[in-house]
């Protein structure tokens, strides 16, 4: 059975790239949301196994979105994806309780390997 992923990213290009990487590798994209608020609604509705979440978005950013999701579901499996991938951003990601931030542009192998790590 395919594992479900919710993508929260305002870029249709990024969402399409993720789709091309993960589908056919044991995952299925159950929904894409363009902002944090929409992503939170979709999470509540669909309870996906994974969330791939961009940091830079209009409205609330990915870090704030992740904090809200984790507050509602501490077991949520969230992978941050961003072009902002410096040490201080990584520290911010860790401070909210997440382990993984992968950089854009997206590397397919890195994404798949990180999803596997997240699933352990």
């Amino acid at each position: 059975m395919k594992k479900s992923i919710l993508v929260i990213d305002d870029s249709p290009f990024a969402a399409q790239q993720i789709r091309e990487v993960v589908e056919g590798k044991g995952y299925t994209i159950v929904a894409c949301a363009k902002d944090g608020e929409g992503g939170i609604e979709k999470y509540r509705e669909l309870h996906p196994e994974f969330v791939i979440l961009d940091i830079i978005m209009p409205g609330i950013d990915g870090l704030e979105t992740a904090q809200i999701l984790l507050k509602e579901d501490p077991a949520a499996k969230i992978l941050m994806l961003s072009s902002l991938c410096d040490a201080s951003t990584m520290e911010e990601v860790r401070n909210i309780g997440l382990k993984y931030l992968i950089p854009k542009p997206l590397d397919a192998d890195v994404l798949l390997a990180t999803l596997e790590l997240l699933d352990r």
Binding site: I56, S82, S83, L84, C85, D86, A87, S88, T89, P103, K104
Partner: peptide
């Protein structure tokens, strides 16, 4: 984002 990451 990558530029700013370097600067950060």
């Amino acid at each position: 984002g990558r530029i700013l990451s370097e600067i950060n």
